[in-house]
Design a protein around this nucleic acid. Structure first.
Length: 489
RNA sequence: GCUCCCAUCGUCUAGCGGUAAGGACCCAAGGUUUUCAACCUUGUAACCGGAGUUCGACUCUCCGUGGGAGCACCA
């Protein structure tokens, strides 16, 4: 086999996720240890959710961490383009080839019809065989040319068994009959993940797919596509998931998941990578602190752990502290502080908010400390408006989180609208919404203007403060959360 | 519900048939320090259960149990 080639294939549909960095880290560590190469490919096949600014944030977050790739949309390479939205002709070509060969078929069933069909199905029914009639009709080509819209589905075998070989878990058997006829080409002409990943990995020469465990169950589909296209499949390695404290898949509902949050909160790149590595890779002996290079030097894919890991902020903080006191000269630390938030750009955002409320220059820092703090400590009383119940305050804060998350652009005007929306929803005077928010955001019910402060704090830090306040108030039960969400939408 | 994955202290882990089951985070106590932090010492705390295999199982096999993931015109 030629040189090892791996890829990082993130989807630009939201804030840069620590899980993306975690998977990327293992891919790169493996490639470097093997002397292979790393491709960064943008999986932007979801037109409704993919955004260019998400891609930009993602790349800069990965670069901030010190992660680097050999080929990608920003550096180019022999397999360009590296953005799936720019490779549509390839996917269509192979989708048609699969149809010609009888491995895939056109389907004209609308999403509405599909939904109705699904809801009619009983519990004990056989696997979701879609569009049975269309599947067996081979003459739909003509109809596809005139139809308003259609999709192309894989034709999964209705019997037989296959095997996924995972380099860590060994052979994983599966029955074709339990797998549905997955859509591979959507009605907008874009491929789904399954087709795109197979076509691109093959065309780009990727021979090792190292991805999250959530992909195991769709690997059979990928394997079948390789077979039908007459290509050699890569070697698969599925990494364990990063978990919330309750052991569910890590989500921003329970944890800060954005790399930007950690950066904003004052974590350094090296300990971040070190900690992420620790999530699935044992340390060398008893020293848990190691550099990326040290990891590469002793990297053995086979030593990766299988159980999911709870992301522990306490331990990350401890490790970060060790880097600060052990690896940085005072000058270097000063430099880190400056490139973090102690710079003109950031502080100048605070000046207009503070000019009217600082009798002396010395009042500035104490009153703006919350802009820099990792967390604040609001009191219970300040979080609950007079005459209201704590449970309602929690609910209100939750709706504030939802309202803020949807904002685009992230501006004072929009934040004001969001807060009004929350007040309307609860039929509360605006003050009953802003006072708890002041406390949650700043740690006290008074301070610089709320909306502009939230602007400076950015979405991830704001959310984490609101979430922390909710936890302080006792949180929200799963049931109540669901009911509230339904009402909110 | 169906399919699959996983299983050592609360958390991250070492262990690869014979160990007093080791380390780290967290927590507690003590020490050091003008304070705090850091540092040092000590302590609390784990092999999910049941059958096998074996002279001997945390370790191998099977069955349970528990947890997780997937089952979209999202990735």
């Amino acid at each position: 086999m030629a040189d090892v080639c791996v890829r990082i294939a993130p989807s630009p549909t939201g804030a840069p996720h620590v899980g993306t960095a975690y998977i990327a880290l293992f891919n790169i560590a493996y490639a470097r240890a093997q002397g292979g190469k790393v491709i960064l490919r943008i999986e932007d096949t979801d037109q409704t959710r993919s955004r260019r600014h998400h891609e930009d944030r993602l790349l800069s977050a990965l670069k901030w961490l010190g992660l680097a790739w050999d080929e990608g949309p920003d550096v180019g390479g022999p397999a360009a383009p590296y953005r799936q939205s720019e490779r549509l002709d390839q996917y269509e070509k192979y989708a048609l080839q699969l149809v010609e060969a009888g491995h895939a078929y056109y389907s004209f069933t609308t999403p509405e019809e599909l939904a109705a069909w699904r809801s009619r199905r009983g519990q004990g029914d056989p696997p979701p065989y879609y569009a049975e009639r269309e599947r067996s009709a081979s003459q739909n080509r003509g109809r596809a040319e005139t139809a308003d819209s259609y999709v192309i589905r894989m034709k999964m075998p209705r019997e037989g068994t296959g095997v996924v070989t995972d380099s860590l878990r060994g052979e994983i058997p599966f029955e074709y009959a339990t797998i549905d006829d997955q859509i591979i080409l959507k009605s907008d002409g874009f491929p789904t993940y399954h087709l795109a990943v197979v076509v691109d990995d093959h065309l780009m020469g990727v021979d090792n797919v190292i991805r999250g465990e959530e992909w195991i169950s769709s690997t059979p589909k990928h394997l079948l596509l390789y077979q039908q296209l007459g290509w050699d499949p890569p070697r698969y390695t599925h990494l364990p998931l990063l978990l919330n404290p309750d052991r569910s898949k890590m989500s921003k509902r329970r944890n800060p998941t954005s790399i930007d949050y950690y950066r904003r909160a004052g974590f350094l790149p090296a300990p971040m990578l070190n900690y992420l590595a620790l999530m699935a890779y044992p340390p060398d002996g008893e020293e848990e602190k190691f550099s990326f290079q040290q990891l590469v030097d002793r990297f053995d894919l086979g030593r990766v752990n299988l159980g999911g890991s709870v992301f522990d902020l306490d331990k990350l903080s401890w490790l970060n502290g060790r880097y600060i006191r052990e690896d940085l000269t005072p000058e270097a630390l000063l430099g880190e502080m400056k490139s973090w938030l102690l710079n003109d750009e950031f502080i100048s955002g605070m000046i207009p908010l503070m000019q009217e409320r600082m009798p002396t220059l010395g009042d500035f820092m104490p009153r703006c400390a919350f802009f820099f703090a990792r967390e604040v400590n609001p009191s219970l009383e300040d979080l609950v408006p007079g005459k209201r119940e704590a449970a309602d305050a929690v609910g209100m804060l939750q709706t504030a989180v939802w309202a803020l998350e949807e904002l685009d652009p992230w501006s004072g005007k929009e934040i004001e609208k969001a807060v009004k929306r929350v007040a309307d929803f609860w039929e509360w005077p605006i003050r009953d919404v802003t006072r708890p928010m002041f406390s949650a955001i700043m740690g006290q019910p008074v301070g610089p203007p709320l909306y502009e402060s939230i602007v400076l704090l950015q979405v991830d830090m704001s959310r984490s403060r609101l979430l922390a306040a909710m936890a302080l108030l006792g949180g929200l039960s799963k049931k109540k959360l669901k009911a509230l969400e339904k009402k909110w939408r």
